[in-house]
Simulated assay, not measured.
Amino acid sequence: MSFDIIKCGMLSLLQDYGRYGYQHIGVTSGGPMDEHAFLWANKLLDNVANATQIEVTFGGLVLLATKPTVIAITGADLGAYINKKAVKPWRTYNISVGDTIMFNQPNTGLRSYLAVKGGFHVEPHLGSSATVVREGIGGIERNGVKLEAGDKLKYSPYTNQYFRSVSSHFIPDYSATIELGVIPSYQFDGFSKHQINIFFSSTYEISNQIDRMGYRLKGEPISYDGNGIISEGISMGAVQIPQDGQPIVLLRDRQTIGGYPKIGCVSALDCNLLAQKRSGDTITFKLIDLQHEQGRRCIFNRFFFD
């Protein structure tokens, strides 16, 4: 009762919604880089929101089904095939014994999510299956190792026919240029008005230094007027400004504390879009209001969790 992994691809990781309650001892949350796509995959299958999925980065994953089930594919279009038929994301597919699921290379976006009816059966590590390679935690063997050829992902068989898809209204355009909302926080007041204007009026290119920990950007450098800071806790989306002035947006596998000044924090919902961008893509920033963003988050949570 499993998917047998034939090829593992560049980076395929088991992820649930994340590991929370341990950042005070230096353990980061992990979880899906694109929360929106992850939650839709489970919603399509009537899974609990936290059900474990596969996050496929850049494609290359090949799976063989040993029992019938239903899957959902969301997120990036990685040129997926079931057997020899091309399939699109943002919908469910009925899977029979012997079916092969293959992810090729990105057409749009960077990360795709594959959920199975009932979720994959994975023993949690500190309350979560989320794989954090850097910390050696979570995943199929609870040691942070990415999925490899020969691994077997267990699930409960499901034989009923099942057809669902996501309305186009809820499907992001991953090819569009994005403007990321930034909440002023941390050391915002330590940056001069001139430096703040540069940050919010510039276009930044995503460098080749991107991973689940964060995205390093290239563009007009920003300088901090203060004298440095004491290391402090770091939130999802925090925008660090290191000594070279090139912003770094910290994401799911970020370190739990850091000492670089931070000009603000990208909206967690906007981080979903950033996680689908690749090296060479460009982004801009806009200043947003905390209360407005709290309202967006409340609507999002009600939709997926109520």
Rank of each mutant, 00 (worst) to 15 (best):
N227G: 13
D253H: 12
F285M: 04
L251M: 15
M33E: 01
Q291T: 11
G237R: 12
S223M: 10
T74P: 04
A41Y: 04
R142W: 01
K85N: 11
D289L: 10
K154M: 11
L153S: 08
E220C: 07
G98L: 11
V56M: 12
R134L: 12
V182G: 01
H121I: 13
H292S: 13
Y158E: 02
N42L: 11
I229D: 08
S202W: 09
T159Y: 14
P172C: 06
Q53I: 05
A37L: 05
R91M: 13
F191L: 05
F300N: 04
D281G: 01
G226D: 12
V249H: 09
G181A: 09
G264I: 05
G233F: 04
Q240Y: 05
R254D: 00
F163K: 12
S2Y: 14
W40I: 02
S223A: 07
Y81W: 13
E141L: 13
Y162G: 05
I248F: 04
R302P: 03
L180P: 00
I263W: 10
L269T: 03
D151G: 03
R134G: 00
H292F: 06
C265N: 15
G214S: 06
I140Y: 02
L273D: 02
N42F: 09
K67Y: 14
G136M: 13
S156H: 13
V116M: 04
Q255T: 06
G139R: 08
Y93A: 02
H169Q: 12
